[in-house]
């Protein structure tokens, strides 16, 4: 897999490059800002299947990762986008999903410790799935809400939705929760139903369910 990286911390970047290359990925471009990375990959000299973006980069050190992601997605609908951050707040992930839509992931840098796992997450993203960091998901689930669609889910359905958000497949979820794939499928259908999603387009529904999950964090009340 060809990967392009934008991160203003040279030390973290080089660590990440080492990690990716050690697990067999090919890092085609490195940059210390979003603009620099876009300039590198889009003339076509350094093609990439996925980009890894730091959330906070120069010049303003605020949300450059998200705006860069939106621009890259606009130029190349097929490229996978992973934003890395040290912030476990759902609001960033939510804004990222809103800006990019599909084939996107939000992971905490702290959790990027397993090269094999990171690469498999990237593969899901490139395949168009949505990946959310388990820490972010956990915090969303911990949060008590006074009212909302998500509250209509029972604990089992919530657990399934959380794993869907993390990018797990039905088989993976079945293994995690010690359930049969068939039961997981039933839960997924039930979650879609409760969130008001059509039963037909399963892949997109998974993304929408995750988005609904994230939005529930932002919904006021």
């Amino acid at each position: 897999m060809r990967i392009a990286i934008a991160d203003d911390s040279a030390l973290f970047r080089s660590g990440l490059v080492l990690l990716l290359e050690a697990s067999g990925a090919q890092v085609t471009a490195q940059a210390s800002s979003g603009a620099e990375l876009i300039a590198r990959i889009f003339p076509g000299t350094a093609r990439a299947d996925a980009v890894i973006l730091d959330l906070r980069m120069p010049p303003t050190f605020t949300g450059e990762g998200i705006s860069t992601a939106a621009e890259i997605r606009a130029r190349d609908p097929g490229i996978g986008i992973l934003v890395l951050s040290t912030f476990a707040e759902a609001s960033y992930a939510s804004r990222l999903m809103d800006a990019v839509g599909h084939g996107v992931g939000y992971l905490l840098k702290d959790n990027v410790t397993d090269a094999g796992h990171l690469l498999s997450q990237l593969e899901r993203i490139v395949a168009g799935e949505t990946v959310l960091d388990p820490t972010v998901v956990r915090r969303l689930l911990q949060r008590k809400r006074s009212a909302g669609t998500i509250d209509t889910l029972n604990p089992r359905e919530r657990a399934v939705l959380a794993r869907m958000a993390e990018g797990r497949s039905n088989v993976g979820i079945a293994q995690d929760l010690h359930l049969s794939p068939r039961t997981v499928e039933a839960h997924v259908t039930s979650v879609f139903g409760k969130l008001g999603l059509e039963q037909t387009d399963t892949d997109n529904n998974r993304i929408r369910a995750v988005l609904a999950f994230l939005r529930s964090a932002r919904a006021r009340g």
Binding site: S9, S14, G15, F61, T113
Partner: peptide, 25 residues
């Protein structure tokens, strides 16, 4: 906050990644 985030935190994250690579080798 920025110094911590962009300095120490990124530094340590980089080290963690290297540690992972070293561990895998």
């Amino acid at each position: 906050e920025r110094d911590l985030h962009d300095g120490a935190q990124q530094h340590l994250l980089g080290l963690a990644a290297r540690l992972t690579v070293a561990m895998s080798r």
